[in-house]
Design a protein around this nucleic acid. Structure first.
Lengths: 340, 340
DNA sequence: TCATGCTGAGAAAAGGTTTTCTCTAGACGA
DNA sequence: TCGTCTAGAGAAAACCTTTTCTCAGCATGA
């Protein structure tokens, strides 16, 4: 049988003070480089502190300072496609500041969301980052009138707060311009459901960036839609496109697979660009996909720094911040095959 | 400019006591159903408490009770393939007990790991769950002699503690038996690097469960290995297998794609079983993959409950617990096509 | 009537840290 | 030599909650 060994009592500042032969207040001041403490006393306290392995109790500290050095990350993205890189960015930005992250996965269940939010507030989080799986939907939970700042990332946020999202229009422009630059002229846009705001935004940017007008093909976010669309296009009469700009990497993968099955060479005859840079799909496609990366990690970094700024009382301009996307060049387009 | 509205001061138990006209101690006892409090006093305190929206400060409570109702989840799986379902299970098991989860992603960086562990200890976590991306590797961080219990899930753990892992042998047996049951006789096992313990375990179970001896083909965890292996098998002379049991869903997907390109019908001519039940791969394959699910969510549940038990001082039998896998039947095998 | 027991409720300590306030001793200028 | 100032250090309050201890009041039994 296994039990906790209560053997090692936690060492407190009392122990440091006793071991250094000073009072608790002096020990505290010495360790925090505050107050008035003699230079050699300060050194001695610090030395003793590391010797006996003192680590301040964050609970006690938080109780007093009203800062828990903890933020909550709320998400309803259970696949983790968007949340995972985003949260890596958040954590990376915050770890230097000694801030930890509570991860709360709420699966579109308002009751569960409420519970999690309350639990976070009870634990005195300094702030909350709300994130989701699409830009034009808000989480199924009420985040207004909270006693802590809320920052939205990749989810619909309140107008009076800060939201971060990718600049889908710019991302689409990037893709189309790249295709034009390598000489493609008939670019078809093959994307997800028109109900998605980002789909419409990308489609608009696509239309604006292409001279000749091809229709935009809306569908669903799956490989099979990519397949089906290719079949439909190549079975229809008339001139065929020489490039496909797809709404996500799954559609792109389906399209590439279908093209191969139709005996059409990618990238020699048709170039394909995806969206999302979802490694697991983009890199495993044959050939690996050139795709648009939404820089979710950077988005997470900024969201983390922003919620921190708000928590510390620093003023922040409210509004929506669109972060630029980046084109990741692999082999599905031809042109310059610089993997970078 | 946006700033925190300090408008709403947090309501403490003092406010409750004042509003109910009792002392703090009485208020506390009334709310916690402890001590001796008159029945109508108790009711009144409770009523007032919800009226003014009192929520106890978990920091203060934790300071006293030495329980923070927080556990840390340490992982080096950045794809989230294993961590995500596992952590969903952990969270699900713990949310009822009011326990929150710190997520710490350490990317094989021992220094970062050390920092995260210390941060968690500073925040007085009640326990730690360590999880990784393979069973036979431990995290790059020292978790011995911690003042809190540690439970390992899907990663190599210390002998004197509790580890949870999937029963890969049983999972492999499940797959082979299913293939046999639907009439397959020449089953080839196509898997990952032999260096992986789970690969060897699955291979052993595969060999034990098949009468005729086919060689096990070791490779890497990628679609392209699945492709290559199929090409190799079908270009070699001799009788061809009528079933492939693959070490993960990516290999299986590569194999299925390759078979289709060779003009071999799945599942009519060859049945394919994968491993992992990674939705995003398994469900998008054509045809969708029958695969072995490691029940990571259940694994997470159990790890969560166990670390909780240890944190509460309840004794737990140390050792490795193997949890059974489950076969998810889709369409890549034929036989009974019950999607369930 | 007095001792005893019990009920309801408040006072106070504890938990670990930070911060403000107070105090002593020495130094310095007059 | 005396007053004033400052450096160094300690005492105590504060953060919020829980828990133990104490106390007053009342009823009961002898």
């Amino acid at each position: 049988m296994l039990s906790i060994e209560n053997s090692k009592k936690r060492v407190t500042i009392h122990d440091v003070a006793a071991a250094a032969g000073v009072s608790i207040s002096t020990a505290s001041k010495a360790l925090n480089n505050t107050g008035r403490v003699g230079i050699e006393t300060r050194e001695r306290v610090k030395r003793v502190s590391v010797e006996i392995g003192f680590r301040p109790n964050a609970l006690a500290r938080g109780l007093l300072s009203k800062r828990s050095f903890t933020i909550g990350l709320l998400t309803n993205d259970t696949y983790g496609r968007f949340t995972l890189p985003l949260m890596a960015g958040v954590a990376e930005a915050l770890v230097d500041h000694g801030v930890s992250v509570f991860l709360c996965a709420i699966e579109d269940d308002p009751a569960m969301g409420q519970i999690h939010v309350e639990a976070m507030l009870d634990k005195q989080v300094d702030g909350i980052i709300a994130t989701g799986k699409r830009i034009d939907r808000s989480l199924p939970v009420d985040l207004s009138n909270l006693p802590v700042p809320v920052v939205y990332a990749f989810t619909e946020g309140r107008a009076d707060s800060v939201s971060f999202r990718s600049d889908d229009g710019q991302g689409a422009k990037l893709a189309v311009e790249w295709l034009s630059r390598i000489g493609r002229r008939r670019i078809v846009h093959l994307t997800g459901p028109e109900a998605f705001f980002s789909v419409r935004e990308r489609a608009a940017a696509y239309s604006a960036a292409t001279a000749h007008k091809e229709p935009v093909l809306y569908g669903v976010w799956s490989e099979s839609w990519g397949h089906e669309a290719v079949a439909r296009i190549w079975s229809a009469p008339g001139e065929k496109p020489d490039a496909l700009f797809c709404g996500n990497d799954q559609i792109a993968r389906g399209a590439v697979d279908a093209l191969r099955e139709h005996g059409i060479k990618v990238p020699e005859e048709v170039s394909v660009v995806g969206f999302d840079n979802w490694e697991i799909v983009a890199a495993q496609t044959r050939p690996p996909l050139t795709t648009v990366d939404m820089e979710l990690k950077e988005l997470g970094r900024q969201a983390g720094l922003t919620v921190l700024a708000l928590a510390e009382g620093r003023p922040v301009e409210p509004g929506v911040r669109k972060l630029p996307c980046r084109l990741v060049v692999r082999q599905s387009c031809g042109g310059q095959p610089s993997e970078k």
